[in-house]
Design a protein around this nucleic acid. Structure first.
Lengths: 207, 207
DNA sequence: TAATTAACATACCAAACGGTATGTTCGACA
DNA sequence: TGTCGAACATACCGTTTGGTATGTTAATTA
């Protein structure tokens, strides 16, 4: 595939994702999509053999990007500090940067959008969605194990669900942010998550 | 409307909600809906003048139920204790009961489902969705103000976003729960929310 | 530069879509 | 007991849907 074709494919994916985040997958017809793209049906079906291939390409790209972002952020955090609690704070800090000072609410998470239409997709699609959830659960649980070992928590907590709280935070914040049309919801919830972690583990926070 | 008609209407709403939570609003056609209901088109359009009236009836019912549940839970909490922190714990405890020991993941929140298809709906629909979010924000912020006055927090926190965290928690947990097919996600996140609150305010939790 | 192919455009199709018009059935009630 | 309306059922309609067949054009590349 040449550069122009690659660009067009990307343009289709970008526009489709934007429309799906506001209308749902079933709510975005190919006719409406190509109309907004100023493109014909022939063009679309040259790049995707059917609508469900577009769906798969979209969720794969979104999930892969999310996984990559998480891995990179974690690697950077691991690099900048040798202390597990510091590492977690740096990790969260990087996500804070992404959501700090947004003008508009974040468009939303394609994973969540698909989750509320899961019966339209294959089991394979659900597995793609779960990749990011399970990766962050795995890596954060590992990190929390290190933290617990070094910093005895003030209260007994289950660290797997504590790890899940990170992804859960985004999904919840996005819903509120979109509906209330407030851009800062995600950033604020990230701050609370950080505060919770510090209250649990940070020895400097003495009563 | 007689009793039988009322029953049928409720049956339509129940089935439609169940299907929408797995396929999205646009993903549920009237044909598929009536097919699963074992009912004809004439029957459906006798109860709803068009599909968007069904959409409005559904979200109104869901939002009203949520609002009522919150109000009742809060009233009960206010009744059982005069201490604001205790009241909050009782409130959360009532939601914990709803999600404790679930066999299957919770089917999901219709508000969230609609939020990811917001462009298909009217501005009025968004306002209906926001009712529950804004009510819990308002009431919980009020409650947190009382708590802060009585129990100086260990760390400075923004109480409005702390209140938002409650609704956000459910929305996030539902997404993970549905996708991972794990029933206990919501209950676990509720426990973390409770722990966070206690770490912030509970004086008995001395370091 | 001729051949080939990627990158589109045009025209069309059957099925599914939301919705309507016109029935029928049956229980309440005067 | 007759009638009237709520509660459905049947048949149909125009539009939209995802998808295909068959073009045309422009860029590689042999």
């Amino acid at each position: 595939m040449g550069k122009k074709g690659e660009d067009t494919r990307t343009r289709i994916l970008d526009t489709a994702q934007d429309m799906i985040l506001g209308n749902g997958y079933a709510g975005v017809s190919i006719d409406k999509l190509i109309s907004r793209l100023g493109m014909t049906k022939g063009a679309f079906f040259h790049h995707f053999k059917n609508k469900s291939e577009l769906a798969t390409a979209l969720i794969t790209r979104f999930s892969d990007d999310g996984v990559e972002l998480f891995k990179e952020s974690l690697a950077r955090a691991r690099k900048f500090s040798s202390d597990p609690l510091q590492q977690l704070m740096i990790l969260i800090g990087q996500y804070e940067e992404l959501f700090e000072g947004l003008e508009e609410p974040y468009a939303g998470c394609l994973l969540a959008s698909y989750v509320y239409e899961l019966q339209q997709f294959s089991e394979e699609t659900r597995e793609i969605i779960n990749r990011e959830f399970l990766l962050s659960r795995k890596e954060l649980t590992k990190l929390f194990r290190e933290i617990v070992k070094k910093y005895p928590p003030r209260v007994d907590v289950d660290i797997k669900s504590l790890a899940d709280g990170f992804m859960s935070l985004f999904e919840g914040a996005f819903v509120l942010s979109k509906s209330l049309q407030e851009a800062d919801v995600t950033f604020q919830q990230l701050q609370h998550y950080k505060t919770y972690i510090r209250l649990l583990f940070d020895p400097k926070l003495a009563a």
